[in-house]
Amino acid sequence: MTLHLTSVWLLLITHTVLVFCDMEFLERTQGDSVEFYCISEFNASKPIGLYLKRKWLQPNQEVLFMFTKQTPAYYDDVKERIHVTGDPSTLRVNVTLSQLKGTDTDLYYCEFVFPDASNADQKIPSNMELFLYVDDVGVKCSCTSYTLLLYVLSSAVGLLLIFLMALGVAHYVKTRGDRITLQPHQASIYEEMAGVRPPNRNGKVSYHPSPPPHLEEMVASAYDNPPLCRQENHYERPAEET
């Protein structure tokens, strides 16, 4: 029984992560009762009918169909154990299933029927799904199938986690790579003395040697002994001729 319940939880985790739907988990014992709340989020028009269906162990198995303002039609196995209140036209219907059995364990969902201009009516399922697990203490089941199911679900969850981790690592590496910027080249003292310029965009290094010694001496002497020039005095009187 523990193995069975573990496989159920793995199914819920896998289904919730992969399908991205709202799910409610209910655990009951054999003979208990459970209530389903069928609520339509689509309110553009009034629905004309409602389906309650099973999805996992008995895919697309109809539990009931209710046409607005009429008596519901039930599946044979639940005909004596089901009670319905409300009407599809109000966007909410409550379904109570009593005297639960182990075979009632399944994933249930509600599907509302809306009128359409075309011949085919539009069926829109509710966002909420309900997983009912009935602990049938009086029945001993073979655990071989559940063991296989457990392995399959465990592998699916493991692959999903590895995929999510790979996405996280790729995003981290990309973000870190965008933050790394190239540092500008700083010329060393030797390069400055030798006249070597830092590399350009193409990665080439240019070398500019110092001028010849005689030019350096001329430039130095020009700065050391600047030419003297006589400053003109505008107030000095010119010399008189005799």
Results as ranks from 00 to 15, higher is better:
212 P>D: 09
230 R>I: 07
64 L>C: 04
98 S>I: 09
227 P>L: 09
169 V>Y: 11
96 T>W: 02
81 R>Q: 08
130 L>Q: 05
35 E>W: 03
210 S>A: 14
198 P>S: 14
196 V>Y: 10
94 N>E: 05
138 G>Y: 11
108 Y>K: 00
197 R>V: 08
114 F>K: 00
238 P>Y: 10
225 N>W: 07
37 Y>V: 14
79 K>I: 02
50 L>V: 04
188 S>N: 15
161 L>Q: 05
132 L>C: 01
192 E>D: 14
207 Y>C: 10
199 P>T: 14
28 R>Q: 06
212 P>H: 08
16 T>W: 10
134 V>M: 05
19 V>T: 13
129 E>F: 07
140 K>W: 10
26 L>N: 05
20 F>W: 11
12 L>M: 14
242 T>R: 12
11 L>M: 07
133 Y>N: 06
232 E>S: 10
34 V>S: 07
31 G>T: 03
107 L>Y: 09
150 L>K: 11
205 V>T: 15
147 T>I: 13
52 L>V: 05
155 S>M: 11
239 A>K: 08
93 V>S: 01
125 P>V: 01
57 L>P: 01
152 V>P: 02
32 D>K: 03
209 P>Q: 09
87 D>E: 03
25 F>D: 05
40 S>Y: 04
46 K>C: 00
62 E>R: 04
104 D>Q: 06
57 L>A: 10
214 H>I: 11
101 K>S: 08
36 F>V: 02
127 N>Q: 11
100 L>T: 06
92 R>E: 04
31 G>Y: 06
54 R>T: 03
182 L>Y: 13
129 E>P: 05
18 L>P: 01
114 F>M: 07
224 D>V: 08
108 Y>E: 00
107 L>M: 11
3 L>Q: 15
69 K>M: 04
99 Q>H: 15
199 P>A: 15
61 Q>C: 03
197 R>A: 15
230 R>M: 11
70 Q>A: 06
171 H>G: 07
70 Q>N: 03
127 N>G: 07
139 V>G: 04
55 K>S: 11
38 C>Y: 00
237 R>V: 09
30 Q>K: 02
204 K>G: 06
219 V>A: 15
234 H>C: 09
86 G>V: 00
127 N>T: 05
1 M>V: 02
203 G>T: 13
73 A>C: 03
91 L>V: 01
194 A>P: 06
197 R>Q: 15
30 Q>I: 07
173 V>Q: 03
78 V>R: 01
89 S>Y: 00
163 F>S: 15
146 Y>W: 13
188 S>V: 06
132 L>Q: 00
157 V>L: 15
163 F>E: 06
180 I>W: 09
136 D>M: 06
55 K>G: 07
65 F>P: 01
45 S>M: 14
37 Y>A: 09
241 E>D: 10
95 V>I: 06
6 T>Y: 13
47 P>R: 00
67 F>W: 01
178 D>A: 08
128 M>E: 09
41 E>R: 02
184 P>D: 12
87 D>Y: 03
65 F>N: 01
178 D>G: 08
220 A>C: 07
51 Y>Q: 01
148 L>F: 13
196 V>M: 12
193 M>R: 07
52 L>W: 01
126 S>L: 02
136 D>R: 08
1 M>Q: 09
195 G>Y: 04
43 N>H: 00
109 Y>T: 04
228 L>V: 11
58 Q>G: 03
157 V>Y: 03
158 G>L: 13
228 L>C: 05
101 K>Q: 14
197 R>I: 08
212 P>K: 06
88 P>C: 01
212 P>A: 11
